[in-house]
Amino acid sequence: IFSYYMILNYQLYILESYIGQSKTAAAATISVMSVVTMVVALIGSLTSGAISDKLGRRKIPVNIASLLLAIGYLLPWVMKTSFSMILFAGFAGLGYAVYGAVDQALNVDVLPNKEEAGKDLGILNIATTLGQTAGPIVTSALVGMAGYNLVFPVAIAFAVLACIFIQMIRSVK
């Protein structure tokens, strides 16, 4: 969540300042990115939960989602084109959709006490909100220090770190 919002909230600025598009071209690119994200999000959301249930696995799909996010961040970092941002929308949008669908099931599976599920899920929701809030703050600081060239590898590092932490969960497959 943290890494996704590092990039998502800055799409317009990335297209204008990093890629070099005009406002009009950036707006057109964001329109295409939005459609791509919507399509892959629908596909990812509708299929990933069912696949996870059928496999009886939660960690593998969540890790795949994190890797899809990392690939999405890598493309604009190395290609620096508007098309790479459209690819970001596809890979990261799919990763975010899979993550959102399967991570909720993973969260429920690791709850320590089913009688306090509401409270525990509320705490997890606060963590999600913190990621959505802190990601853009970190991006702002990174851009101020070194420009957008530093934002993408940091986002990749956080997505990979998420995979490591997910693997550390022992109570769920």
Rank of each mutant, 00 (worst) to 15 (best):
Ile1Arg: 12
Ile1Thr: 13
Phe2Ala: 01
Tyr5Asn: 11
Ile7Lys: 06
Tyr10Ser: 13
Tyr10Met: 13
Tyr10Pro: 00
Tyr10Val: 00
Tyr10Phe: 14
Leu12Lys: 07
Leu12Asp: 09
Glu16Ser: 07
Gly20Met: 13
Ile30Leu: 14
Ile30Tyr: 01
Ser31Glu: 07
Val35Ser: 07
Val40Pro: 06
Ser45Trp: 03
Leu46Trp: 10
Gly49Ile: 13
Gly49Thr: 08
Ala50Glu: 06
Ile51Arg: 11
Lys54Thr: 08
Lys54Cys: 04
Arg57Asp: 07
Asn63Pro: 00
Ala65His: 05
Leu67Ile: 15
Leu69Cys: 06
Tyr73Val: 01
Lys80Gly: 00
Lys80Cys: 01
Thr81Glu: 05
Ile86Phe: 00
Leu87Val: 10
Leu94Trp: 03
Leu94Ala: 13
Ala97Tyr: 03
Ala97Cys: 05
Val98Tyr: 08
Tyr99Val: 01
Gly100Phe: 07
Ala101Arg: 05
Asp103Leu: 14
Gln104Pro: 00
Asn107Val: 15
Asn107Tyr: 11
Asp109Gly: 03
Asp109Phe: 08
Pro112Met: 13
Asn113Tyr: 12
Glu115Pro: 05
Glu116Asn: 12
Gly118Cys: 07
Gly118Pro: 10
Leu121Tyr: 07
Ile123Ser: 02
Ile126Tyr: 02
Gly135Lys: 05
Ile137Tyr: 14
Ser140Asp: 02
Ala141Leu: 15
Val143Asp: 09
Gly144Ala: 14
Tyr148Ser: 14
Leu150Ile: 12
Val151His: 03
Phe152Lys: 08
Val160Gln: 07
Gln167Arg: 14
Met168His: 00
Arg170Asn: 09
